[in-house]
Design a protein around this nucleic acid. Structure first.
Lengths: 143, 143
DNA sequence: AAATCAGATGATAATAACTATCAAGTGATA
DNA sequence: TATCACTTGATAGTTATTATCATCTGATTT
């Protein structure tokens, strides 16, 4: 689910991570968006409240938050890492035209791996994430 | 399927892309591996045969080859782009322990999107790729 | 409430991967 | 074999991220 600010603070405390003002602002910013901001987006946001913050601090802290399981990341070709306040089981759709990302929730999924072609042996699979792409509603409408 | 060198040359010719020695060597290197080399891996490889080649040329050409549909890319968190000579419909498994990538083929798959939670509207989906992760056979054995 | 100190910060420099620019060179067609 | 649009190598620049380190500070202990 999407984490509220209070939930994130709780999680932060139980995970033992030290609660600095910089981290509080990051968590606040992340809890208030449904977008997938980059480190730089968040840097500019936090800088408005804590003008002396540096990009290094933002990067370091985002990585800490990911490590602590409070937020997730989303990686794309040639683009800066985006941070995702939603940590539950979901997937992503990327619009080929406008590049926007949409969260995707599945009500059902199943797959069968062709073990002969795949050379996976009996590897154990912990999780999977599906990356969809196509054209979003807005882009479909505007042409 | 995995492209052989001859198949790649054919595809290159029909796609109208100019066949320079640098591109030939890239195609040869890619056709001879089942791994997922980075631009730098390929640069070092091609440099052995064409010592004056530069990284810019490698990058430019890999992008041309991707654009022409001869090869595919694979993106991962904080790692350089990897190039994949296999362009047919397949997926990837990444081992959490050793980081190796394995191609995954599905004999069957289906999913149902929860449109209410997903805010996708009636976006049209062109394709999807599944990223699996877990522990590979070797890493399971070695502990 | 003050002392403690592991962990965090800001300043700064460095790195890695990629991209832009451009003069000179070259495949492929005519 | 002449032509020329496309490609190359050399080079510099960019962007996102990471490393280093002296100083500072949350949170636990006293």
């Amino acid at each position: 689910m999407t984490n509220s600010f209070d939930m994130l603070l709780d999680k932060a405390r139980t995970s033992g991570i030290r609660l600095t003002p910089q981290r509080m602002e990051l968590l606040r910013a992340l809890s208030e968006t449904t977008k997938h901001p980059t480190a730089d987006d968040l840097y500019r946001h936090v800088k408005r409240i804590l003008p002396s913050v540096t990009q290094a601090t933002i990067h370091r802290n985002l990585q800490e938050l990911v490590k602590a399981g409070l937020i997730a990341t989303l990686e794309r070709t040639g683009r800066p890492t985006q941070y995702d306040p939603t940590v539950d089981d979901h997937h992503h759709f990327v619009c080929r035209r406008c590049g926007r990302i949409f969260d995707v929730y599945l009500s059902h999924s199943e797959y069968r791996i062709d073990r002969r072609k795949s050379e996976l042996g009996d590897a154990s699979i912990d999780r999977f994430e599906i990356h969809f792409d196509g054209t979003c509603t807005d882009c479909l409408a505007s042409r």
